[in-house]
Amino acid sequence: MKIITSWLAGAALALIAGMSSAASTGNTIATVDPEADRLALQAYFQKRFPEVELADYGNGIYALDAASRAQWEELEEFPPYEFDIEEGEELFNTPFANGKSYADCFENGGIGVRQNFPYWSEQQDQVVTLELAINQCRTANGEKKLGWKKGKIAQISAYMAFTSAGELIDIKVPNDKAKAAYLDGKAQFYSRRGQLNMSCANCHLQGVNIPIRADRTGPTLGHVTHFPVFRSKWGALGTLHRRYGGCQNNVRGTALKAQGEEYRNLEFFMSYMSNGLAVNGPGSRK
């Protein structure tokens, strides 16, 4: 109870300190300004955690909490995702039945491209995430789709992220349709859901680094840079949309479909927020 009280008090203080009503960053296509949103989000975190370097936000909660960081650094000495990267590389390089491979579907043969995903596809009229592109590549070449949340798709995604290490996230919102998708993702992020009536922002903005039992929630700034992640709780690698579903279940809301429009738009918004931060996936988390 004490912990819950402290969390609520902390969240309330953070809310009062960093928020004001009716943000000027917009809630319509005409007024929404992704770059202003990104700068405001950065400013919010820099005000709350002035000692943390912006580039370190890619390390999630480990950028903020020294004790957690020490444990994580020990874990990273023998990264639990190492074999997944190797298996991902093998899967990536194994030709399809028609002789083509993943490399034929992506720019630069799929090497060092993670930072450009998700992107707005004019042709498809939707946000295309890396995992969606991987499965689209498969079906275009006569192969069956992979499951969205774990296993092979996460391994391939992990390998592709690994080849992109250090590249800076570079998401673009090129037109009004893309803006609409971005705005939808933004609204998703800040909307309360589930029986616990909580939004993504409640934990990953206002609730950042405040203890919830033995854990502390990580900042949304830099959230996407290290996915897919090997979570100790899962004992395996998982995609960002797997995590979205888990978060939603945690607040007693029924998870939406992985790679459905809502989660892809949410990823689009969150990735834009991390523009300029380096890809450092796959990562390991509790």
Partner: peptide, 23 residues
């Protein structure tokens, strides 16, 4: 009741999410 509250939450979120955005 759960379902009705979920619908109310949906409508409420549509109105109020912007208040949570940092400026």
């Amino acid at each position: 009741y759960h379902a009705r509250m979920g619908v109310a939450q949906y409508h409420n979120s549509k109105q109020s999410w912007l208040n949570m955005v940092p400026e």
